[in-house]
Design a protein around this nucleic acid. Sequence first.
DNA 1: GTCTATAGGCCGATAGAC
DNA 2: GTCTATCGGCCTATAGAC
Lengths: 208, 208
Amino acid sequence: MAAERNGGNDNSKTRDAILDATESIMREQGYAAVSSRRVAEQAGLKSQLVHYHFGTMDDLFLALFQRAGAAYFERHVQAMTSDDPLRALWELITDRTGMELIFEFMALSNHRKPIRAEMARSNQRTRTLQAALLTKALEQRGITPDVCPANVLSVLMSGVALALVSENAIGNSIGHADTLSFVERLMQKTTPPRVAGKTGARGRPRKR
Amino acid sequence: MAAERNGGNDNSKTRDAILDATESIMREQGYAAVSSRRVAEQAGLKSQLVHYHFGTMDDLFLALFQRAGAAYFERHVQAMTSDDPLRALWELITDRTGMELIFEFMALSNHRKPIRAEMARSNQRTRTLQAALLTKALEQRGITPDVCPANVLSVLMSGVALALVSENAIGNSIGHADTLSFVERLMQKTTPPRVAGKTGARGRPRKR
DNA sequence: GTCTATAGGCCGATAGAC
DNA sequence: GTCTATCGGCCTATAGAC
């Protein structure tokens, strides 16, 4: 073990290239396909550099997860400041490219303790932020929380989005179009009051 | 490649032992930990027997998935004939031990075409059966399908269950208790009419 | 159907030169 | 920070004896 693993202040291009390559392999071939040699090849480097910059492979996974988790959290923050936070959140969590990396980490973390711990922290942070966002959104739409509490709505929405994205990845879309228009109808039934001259809250068409 | 791979009519103890060992490793250490050597060790056999009986490792995964998928489908069929199909389905899909293997296969299948194809088939079959079950359950409870179509409800329930189980595995339970009692309340609000002298449809207590 | 033996390959990780 | 070289290990899969 050399004298690195310095958390993030070694922001060299090499480090980023390694993380980029790891992310790309995870997305396209799954976490099980990540090896120091493959990562290095993808990044145009020698495999030893992976170990030099990140230590063990688990350390590499952890570093990538921290980067991805922070980016995902940032997207939530942006959704929160959107004109229509509810719709912005829904679009965020049903975005397949955003979810596929997280799905890989979920599977990976199920059997690696240190990654699981980080995953739990990130997931809790996201849930808390989602609940705050939804509290605001429900209030904006004049829905009292006794109909459905914000934290419950967060679990419901996350779950449905997870089902849609993961089943879609597998190749089953039975009921998906109906579910999307069902959600669309729920959101339109409670359109927030327009505040300014912007028109960002109208729904886009969905095929049945 | 020898002269085996005979689908299932070679129902030797060895074959079952290999499948059992594979399932056990997948559950406890994840699909990436499955190797012919480890499977054989767990089953008390030589690793070459794995190849003799199943061919490639992908063939082994496929055989196990077929067995597990059939068992899971069978549990759905049993739920369908229950006194309270809606509750039986909910208990089935929120059962962690039932889901963890499926979750591994979902992750695995994302990057292996033949397994993905089988997964899609199984998932479609399950969705169709769930929709039939829910059609019956909604009717039984006097809910018209225009409130929420059965196939949509199937996606919603599957998703929420998936979120609960997978987040629980990670170690985040924020909002879960509230979600469970939310679902419980929905189910109790629409208790099916009792048909016989049995009392299987009352809810069991949930902590908030 | 189970055994021994083995080919051929990818893996993580480290040592030490520059 | 990057290079060359390398150790020791586990992997899939097959050949051939019994």
